[in-house]
Computed example of a mutant assay.
Amino acid sequence: MATTTTDKAQFKVGDETFQTWYQVTGDLHSGKRPLVALHGGPGVPHSYMLAHLDLYTSYNIPVVLYDQLGCGKSTHLREKPKEFWTVDLFMNELSNLLDHIGITEDFDLLGHSWGGMLASSYAALRHPPGLKHLIIADSPASMPLWEETTAALLAEFPEETRETLRRHEEAGTTDSQEYQEAVMEFYKKHVCRLEPWPQEIQESFKGLSEDPTVYHTMNGPSEFTVVGSLKTWSIIDALPNIKSPTLVINGEHDEAQELCVRPFRERIPNAKWAELRGCSHMPFWEGREEYFQLVGDFLGSG
């Protein structure tokens, strides 16, 4: 039976102190290298990442999950200006958490979607010496590539759906039910193809809807309309700096199509790539057995 503990790490930003909620499943001192999993969004709480506890169940790998600042059980900061929400902020939070739980010298990192953007930035720009394996799941190497691929996917939908999206985005009424229903048509094909969605995914999206501050500020109103501060983000030029063995994963029907992930596998010196057939943006739910065998074998490779 897995032992799971939860706590909060104090995270100082300037003169202010915030709380990063986290949970640890397994023993960080068992001799098995722990995996820290970074959720997406930004601002989508950790619940949908709970499937990654399969790595503890099947491989005895300790798994650390946490809610990034601004969402879930961590400190919410609805009043902060857009300048507050930066990639550096979240890299600093990750460093603080690693130090708090005492695993800076020996750990693996897995990032999903925005979490993969964060993880690749952390590996390429901070050069953490204790990082032994990096997994980038369903993530773009740049937001311009993401926009290019999501635009192509959206073009396959009926004109009526696209017109509904355009009309509400132009009118600034993206919180309307009609807009949200049109968005969900896209999500059910390219975010998660299971019907119904697992409860853990539903809980994460409920958390996002309750406080979309970080998502709206850094991304925008939807996965395919990027108007926030991440719009020009790219890690492509820094990818050769990543020295850790890296596994890149995406799904056949993923928002993060092959074009998005290609720079990771081409520019990271020691990278492997796997595309999971029949899956979209959440292969750890849609192709769970294949995904975790792939990840577990990679983490155990050295």
Rank of each mutant, 00 (worst) to 15 (best):
E210P: 08
A256L: 05
H281D: 02
H52W: 12
E93A: 01
F90V: 06
T225M: 03
S121Q: 09
A171N: 13
Y187D: 13
L125N: 12
L125F: 06
E181Q: 10
S74Q: 07
N270P: 03
A151T: 13
R126D: 11
T4K: 11
H100P: 13
K231E: 09
R126Q: 05
E195R: 10
D175K: 07
T17G: 07
N60Y: 14
G300I: 09
E147F: 01
F284I: 10
K32Y: 06
P212T: 10
T225R: 15
P269G: 07
K272C: 11
R166V: 14
D211A: 13
E266M: 14
A271P: 08
H100L: 14
E159D: 14
T104Y: 09
A151Y: 00
R267L: 13
W114F: 07
T86V: 08
M91G: 08
W285C: 01
G287D: 11
A238F: 00
T150H: 11
P245G: 10
E203L: 12
A274N: 10
W21A: 15
P158V: 04
P221M: 13
V36L: 15
S74P: 03
G300F: 01
K82S: 13
K73R: 12
P198I: 06
V248R: 01
L28D: 04
R288K: 09
H46A: 09
Y48G: 07
D54S: 15
E16T: 04
K188V: 05
S95C: 05
E148I: 11
G228D: 00
S244Y: 12
P128I: 06
C192E: 00
G300W: 02
F157V: 08
G14H: 03
P81C: 04
Q202K: 12
G296C: 12
L294I: 11
F107Q: 07
V63E: 01
E16G: 07
Y215V: 00
F205D: 02
Y59W: 14
T20V: 03
L194Q: 09
T57C: 14
V227C: 15
L165Y: 03
V44R: 02
N219Q: 12
T86H: 12
Y59N: 15
Y187R: 10
R33S: 05
M184K: 11
A152P: 02
A152G: 06
H127Y: 15
R262Y: 05
S209I: 00
M49C: 02
